[in-house]
Design a protein around this nucleic acid. Structure first.
Lengths: 347, 347
DNA sequence: TCCATGTCGTAAAACGTTTCATTTCAGGCT
DNA sequence: AGCCTGAAATGAAACGTTTTACGACATGGA
């Protein structure tokens, strides 16, 4: 009924050679005469034969397959990560199984088990919380590289950005520009990045008074609860969104409250996205080197898969803070951050 | 040296039963006594056994694995598509191999062959051009559902949006609002969607004069060439970007040319993104139901994988045009499009 | 002539599953 | 007792590869 894909046996028969010879040709083994090789290739072409990677892996134990677990594929930041990863992995001949944990530890554990069922030669995880180690299936063997978020357990390779220093740089600028109070808005401090950013923000704040608001995993609805804190007389004169989705949800709220940026309130954001350059005024933001992070994670995983057995390494990449119209200029010229860059749209 | 994952044989030995019994327990076969089942489960837990899906597929011929080919994972629109797809597929117990063709037909062919090597039970393709059929590896057997872009060959199931009518709706509004000339900006008419949108735009234009500009696969740099056509005396009084990335690149260009929207020039876009609501003025845009498209594609594929052998089906989903501040209001009240708020479609 | 020494090919055994066909065993019927 | 039935468990054969070990056949040196 259903015609099955051609197998290596059919190729062998059509070429009039043995199974082993076909295999040797396909895997570029040295000892095979040119005419036999030609016969085999002809048969392969004619039948449209594509080797079955599952069977291949089963026998050889080697698979050009890697897994990726991200908290949320719908988030453009993680989408870019996967996009770059897919590209560099492909350049090394690797295929990718992509799963999303939807920020749920239970789902994360489930997806990890699922990925393991494919016996990939390595996995890259952006864990949804710090307890990744506790959720690994028992007999795990494949190398793991953790990216973006910081696990409690130090036994993993880690690639992340310098959340703290970058956040400090932002608050330092706000304080230097004369802001007295600043509301910092995060999804949840349960996420290690947010914690690092919050702590960094405190470091850079100096005399500026800092307050924290957590809006939860769904910022789009969570920010609504902040109206009160933003409209009263005691409202802060600066706002710092620690994450892109939060920023996206928060920004229109200001307009609806009748607040003008930056005259009434200064506004800065972590996790730069393209739209931040387009709005009026453009947003001061810290850009994460997502592409570099994906690249670095792959390089590290590649090394592990090749047998590198060194101690776990941690790589921290630098964020870039760009000052734009949404924050007032520094009172004193100060230690020269990037002055403004391009895209002022219509002040 | 490298400790391998536990196999079904180890489970069998530990539980003191046969291989077949373990398999029967794991696959929920009926005839197995409760006490044996318990013994097996205990062993599975203890060893952290996870069945090898590759071996399982090899023997049974059934795999809960599907492939997805998208033109560009970095594009938020495709990222959302994959995100939704991954979710619904997972709900049916399917894993996903995700590859990006980077808008290159040769890469697409290569990736398709690569995906086939995993023998997935189905594949969803967003082809980079119409000639998908010609690029399928010879002995292809798995069902294919095409989404978003329209293949020349009618033999595939297709899920797409109603590009033409939606584009017509936009130009009809522009014309009705008094625009006399409109520049339509696309990446390339080689892409079927763009063609449909361009043709639709012509249908809706009525007396309004239409011109077309193709900026190529990389709008970010391509739009620069449009400065001349936008600054001279003969400049159009409306601009219609047929795609989100183009819109993103085009929009800042207006500001740098000193053009005020909508006073100097009206602006509308296909492919609504969140930032379009945030800029000043907010953008009139046609929203594609990406989530519904992914959902529908999966449903169709699911049916095919289950054996549905009916003729190829085409599903067209409706876009939603939302009028916002970037286009002037309709001159006469007219046939009431959604004034601004939520999206009404209009047949 | 005859044995080392290659080179090129092949048969057959694995890899971890599922499934087929078979065995075993306990009852329930005449 | 003898016979048939069905349930519960198992042995062994596949699935499509890669790999190991070995065979055939020249070649060349003694």
């Amino acid at each position: 009924m259903t015609p099955r894909s051609p197998t290596i046996r059919m190729v062998a028969e059509r070429a009039g050679v043995s199974l082993a010879t076909v295999s040797n040709v396909l895997n570029g083994k040295p000892s095979v005469s040119p005419d036999y090789a030609a016969r085999v290739m002809e048969a392969v072409e004619a039948l449209g034969y594509v080797p079955d990677l599952a069977a291949s892996r089963l026998r050889s134990g080697k698979a050009a397959l890697a897994g990726v677990v991200v908290p949320d594929l719908g988030n453009p930041m993680f989408a870019r990560f996967v996009s770059v990863l897919e590209h560099v992995a492909r350049e090394d001949g690797f295929d990718l199984v992509v799963v999303s944990s939807r920020n749920d530890p239970a789902e994360e554990a489930d997806r990890l088990a699922n990925i393991r069922a494919w016996r990939p030669s390595g996995v890259i995880v952006l864990p949804c919380d710090g307890a990744l180690a506790a959720r690994l299936p028992a007999g795990w063997t494949a190398p793991i590289v953790v990216a973006d978020r910081i696990p409690d357990d130090g036994r993993f390779d880690l690639v992340a950005v310098d959340n703290g220093p970058a956040a400090a740089q932002v608050t330092r600028h706000l304080a230097g520009a004369g802001c007295r109070t600043c509301l910092v808005v995060a999804t949840s401090l349960a996420i290690s990045n947010m914690r690092e950013r919050w702590e960094g923000a405190q470091v850079g704040a100096g005399a500026m008074e800092l307050a924290l608001a957590e809006v939860g995993d769904d910022p789009a609805s969570g920010v609504a609860r902040l109206s009160g804190r933003l409209s009263g007389t005691g409202r802060p004169d600066a706002l710092f969104a620690l994450e892109q989705m939060t920023s996206l949800a928060l920004y229109p709220l200001l307009g609806s409250l009748g607040l003008v940026v930056p005259a009434d309130i200064a506004y800065a954001s972590f996790d730069e996205m393209e739209w931040m350059r387009l709005v009026t005024p453009p947003l001061t933001a810290a850009r994460q080197p997502v592409e570099a992070m994906a690249q670095a994670a792959w390089t590290r995983l590649r090394a592990r898969m090749a047998g590198d057995a060194g101690p776990p390494a941690t790589i921290r990449l630098a964020c870039t803070v760009t000052l734009r119209g949404s924050t007032p200029p520094a009172a004193s010229p100060g230690p020269a951050l990037t002055p403004s860059g391009s895209g002022r749209h219509r002040p």
